[in-house]
Structures are given as structure tokens and as C-alpha cells.
């Protein structure tokens, strides 16, 4: 069986339509909306268009879970015992089991909110971050960056479930959040172990993580202000092995990502 499966070969049926994340960021409507008062982007029941914001995010979570399953599954298979410790592969197998359960939960939650699978487009940048040929980079890209984003997303969605009084959403997100903390902790622990005597390699891996984190901040999608739909979950990140300095640094990355996206959108608008 082929190792390092390219994103184009992921199995999808006709319900799924893929888009490039750049398409969304270059949509001329984004710059127009930025000039308006559409209320806070933070996900709260009283925010404008809250039900559809939540439905779209829930579908995005499902797609993310599917790609996380594919990514962890590939890591279990793509590396031989000479490349990585067997225990690491065992952790990835356990994570695949968790992710497949998350897929099932996410499908049911989407249905609970009146969303069909494939109702929204699929962006594949999550899986793309899971295609690094170096196991260490993959671990930081997937377990520290991607799963870190999952912590932020699940915590945001859980808070939305709590504030809207939706017991199903709140309970399911809480369960999945607990798993994600474990997944990030696995990444933090393995990063430490695999680079114990190689600080240069550790720095290289962390640099890759910073790049992926910036990509996952999606031009302001994640951050710590009311303008960010997804809030950085400091407490859970600390539980998952992130230091306060690392979280502060990530917070700065999210601000940079938002500023860059706004500059790109303005340039696009001026050019058109």
C-alpha cells in the first residue's frame, strides 16, 4: 500500500465539494463585510446569524475530524519501527480510534442542528498539514497545531452549547474536548522525548508548528478578541502541555494572521 497518501487521493463520495482556503480569503465580499457592523464574530446565541454560524462550524468540525482520522491513521502506517518508536505508533492508533468516534459524534451533532453531510464545502488544509515526510514535523503539525486548534474549536462550541442551553451539544463537545487534550499532550510529550538530545531538531519542529498555527488561525478565525469566532482555550492548552510563553506566542501569531488577511483583502479589493 502507498505511503504518504496525497490529499487528492483521499476517499470522498459525491456529496463532498472541495475548496481552497485562499478562495474564501480572496472573496471580495469579505472586505465589504469588514467595513460593516455585523456584530461580534464570537459565537454566542445572541450574535447575528448564530444558528447558521454554529451549523457551518459544526460541519467544519466534522470535516476536521475526518481529516484528523486520516492523518493519524496515515502516521500509524507511514512510518516503520526504525523511523519512530512503536509506542508512538500505538498512540496514533489510539488517536485514530478516538477520531473515528468523533466523526460519528459530529455527524449526529450536525444532524441535531439540521445540517446534512456535504452541505458545506470541504477545505483540506488540515490533512495537508499531516503529510510531512518527517515524523517529528507531522507530530508537531498534527498533534500540537491541528489538535490544538481542535481544543480551541471544541471549547468554543462547548461554551456555545452551555450558553444556548443545548445539553446535547455541550455534553458531546465536552467529551471530545477531553480526547483532544490527550492528543495534544501526546504531541507535546513525544516532541520532548524525540528531541531530548537534539535542540536544533526541536527548534525546527517548533518552527514548523508556528507556520501551521498561523495557517490554522485563518486570518482571524481564531484569536482572543470578540472579532474571532474561535477563542484560544488557554486553560485546556496548559493542560495539554503548552507553556504560558507558547500560548502567548500563539496569541501573537493569531493577531499577525488576522492583520495579514486584512491587508490581502484590501489589496485584492483595490486591484479589482
Amino acid at each position: 500500500m502507498k505511503k504518504i497518501l496525497p490529499v487528492e487521493e483521499l476517499a470522498r463520495d459525491s456529496r463532498f465539494v472541495r475548496v481552497q482556503i485562499q478562495e474564501a480569503m480572496m472573496d471580495p465580499r469579505q472586505a465589504k463585510v469588514a467595513e460593516r457592523n455585523t456584530g461580534s464574530a464570537k459565537l454566542q446565541p445572541e450574535r447575528p446569524a448564530a444558528p447558521d454560524r454554529a451549523r457551518q462550524l459544526m460541519h467544519g468540525i466534522f470535516m476536521g475530524e475526518l481529516q484528523a482520522l486520516e492523518g493519524a491513521g496515515r502516521t500509524t502506517f507511514d512510518f516503520d519501527d526504525e523511523d519512530v518508536p512503536f509506542q508512538l505508533k500505538l498512540d496514533m492508533a489510539r488517536q485514530s480510534w478516538d477520531e473515528s468516534r468523533h466523526c460519528e459524534i459530529s455527524v449526529k451533532l450536525a444532524e441535531h442542528m439540521g445540517t446534512e453531510i456535504g452541505e458545506f464545502s470541504e477545505a483540506t488544509f488540515l490533512y495537508e498539514a499531516a503529510c510531512a515526510e518527517d515524523a517529528l514535523l507531522r507530530l508537531t503539525g498534527v498533534n500540537r497545531a491541528l489538535e490544538g486548534l481542535a481544543i480551541d474549536v471544541f471549547n468554543t462550541m462547548k461554551e456555545f452549547g452551555d450558553s444556548s442551553g443545548d445539553p446535547v451539544l455541550a455534553a458531546c463537545e465536552d467529551w471530545m474536548l477531553a480526547d483532544e487534550v490527550t492528543h495534544v499532550k501526546m504531541g507535546s510529550d513525544w516532541l520532548r522525548r524525540l528531541t531530548e538530545n537534539d535542540p536544533e531538531r526541536r527548534e525546527l519542529a517548533l518552527e514548523f508548528q508556528r507556520t501551521v498555527d498561523k495557517l490554522f488561525s485563518l486570518g482571524g478565525f481564531r484569536g482572543e478578541t470578540d472579532e474571532n469566532p474561535i477563542q484560544l482555550a488557554r486553560k485546556f492548552r496548559q493542560m495539554a502541555g503548552f507553556s504560558t510563553d507558547e500560548i502567548d506566542e500563539l496569541s501573537e501569531v493569531t493577531v499577525e494572521a488576522q492583520a495579514e488577511a486584512e491587508a490581502m483583502a484590501t489589496a485584492e479589493q483595490q486591484a479589482s
Binding site: 465539494v17 465580499r29 463585510v33 447575528p48 446569524a49 451549523r55 457551518q56 456535504g118 452541505e119 458545506f120
Partner: peptide, 30 residues
Amino acid sequence: LPLPLTGSTADVVEGGAVLWFSGADFEDGR
């Protein structure tokens, strides 16, 4: 207004139906 910024209003003004829609209401999510 793109997805997910949906919203609409439906009123009657001087005997006529006045409907306002966010463009997102008619937009294909895919």
C-alpha cells in the same frame, strides 16, 4: 453578505410586501 451571515425581514409597507434578504440566504454552501 456571504455565508454564514444569513438573515431576512418580511414586512408590509403601504399595502405591498417588502422583503429583505442577506445574499447568504440564497448561497450554495458548497
